[in-house]
Amino acid sequence: MQDDIVIRVVAKVMIPAVMLFALYVQFHGDYGPGGGFQAGVIFASAFVLNAVVFGLNKGRHVWPARYNLMGICGGVLLYGFTGVAGMVLGKNFLNFNVLSSDPVAGQHLGILLVEFGVGLTVAAVMVMLFFTFAGRTAHLRLLSKSDAHERKVSASKTAKKVKK
């Protein structure tokens, strides 16, 4: 798609806008519709757009898979440990009142953190999912081109083995 100038140019404008919108949704979940999950999805769709328009490899470069996995786990852990903080501070798991001296402010902080954890996880997950699914195609295509013959042989071997 990067050979099409119209799409390319428009995408370049759209991508930052989408990401900003995602973050807006993320942090205004308290006031309007939206929250971590939606924001994560929208944020990821910016990446999807990027990868679709500029190619998967370029898309991958932006955010290496290793960090992506860290993002996923980090989001979950952020959520979890926000909850554990309540436990450490003497109340039950996921009690946000104690996060700050004022219960309402504590709740606010807790919700913010928790939503951010969700957002981080979801964004990273969706990006990962997309790259994994789309990457499968590239993977196959490459394989089928380079060593189709060789693999046919080994595949029949495997098949035999399976039959045994």
Partner: peptide, 18 residues
């Protein structure tokens, strides 16, 4: 957020003069 988006966008290479 604005800062972060700019950063990621520049990583994506979408912030050129196009």
């Amino acid at each position: 957020s604005a800062l972060g988006v700019s950063m990621i966008a520049s990583r994506m290479g979408v912030l050129d003069d196009e």
